[in-house]
């Protein structure tokens, strides 16, 4: 009975750790689950073996399985199953090693200055020059965002997708997946100057701290003009309904 309780308690905590992955799509990393579970199992074992009665209750079923003459059949089945299970798990672990672990930052810190288009941009305090029109001339602003959309669909949508969800035609050929712009945890967290840097300099411009540099994003400074870049940034925010972070907050 206590053995079942022991397993149930551990299963409960395992389910708790698995829940974010299954329900919210944000899995707890397997490396963390392994460590957590190791110590959870240890703690539950300790708590359940404080008294002698507790310890005996926990281990009695195992002892009887190994020693009780009346359970010889169950014992034989177990002794066949154990090596099979061990073999299967070894095979499982050795056939699919998967790609190696990596330590990579998705939004690495930007540099202080960016040199492009023959100019030097200090990213600190850099604003989108077209953003002011949003209040001054909403009609012209809409037109600029629409033009930004044209730039987007001529250049970006192949990877970042028609719905700006990062799932374009080529998206699944890449690892990491292209960044989605929808949702509240990508561009909504960033300033426009950050996007400017990422578009203009692309994957090659990522700093070393970004870990293994495997972003496939091209550096667009040779393909797009400065104005086109600012316009496409307008489009990204306008279309997804996100607001860029400003330098004030």
């Amino acid at each position: 009975m206590r053995l079942i309780k022991f397993l149930a308690v551990n299963l409960f905590f395992y389910a708790l750790l698995k829940a974010p992955g299954l329900l919210a799509g944000k899995p707890v990393p397997s490396s963390v689950i392994t460590m957590y579970m190791f110590f959870i199992v240890m703690t539950v074992l300790l708590v359940m073996t404080i008294t002698d009665e507790g310890a005996n209750g926990l281990f009695a079923p195992i002892r009887s399985l190994l020693e009780d003459p009346s359970r010889a059949l169950a014992r034989k089945v177990l002794f066949v199953l154990l090596p099979v299970a061990a073999a299967l798990s070894v095979q499982y672990l050795s056939t699919d090693p998967g790609p190696p672990f990596e330590l990579r930052s998705a939004h690495p810190a930007p540099p202080g200055v960016v040199r492009a288009y023959g100019k030097v941009y200090e990213l600190d305090g850099l604003e989108n020059p077209l953003r002011a029109l949003e209040k001054e001339n909403p009609a012209a602003f809409k037109e600029l965002a629409r033009e930004g959309g044209e730039v987007y669909f001529r250049n970006c949508f192949f990877c970042h997708g028609a719905r700006l969800d990062g799932r374009g035609h080529y998206a699944y050929a890449m690892d990491p997946l292209p960044m989605p712009f929808t949702g509240s945890d990508t561009i909504a967290q960033l300033k426009e100057s950050y996007l400017f840097w990422r578009i203009v300099k692309g994957g090659p411009g990522l700093p070393r701290e970004g870990g293994p540099n495997i972003s496939s994003m091209p550096a667009w400074e040779n393909e797009l003009t400065e104005e086109e870049v600012w316009k496409v940034i307008l489009f990204l925010y306008d279309y997804t309904g996100n607001r860029p972070r400003s330098w004030k907050d």
């Binding site: 810190a109 930007p110 202080g112 200055v113 030097v120 200090e122």
Partner: peptide, 16 residues
């Protein structure tokens, strides 16, 4: 001298 500053001033624009 990291990009975030913090311990020491960021140097990306130091000559400026």
């Amino acid at each position: 001298h990291t990009r975030e500053g913090g311990r020491a001033p960021a140097l990306e624009g130091s000559a400026l």
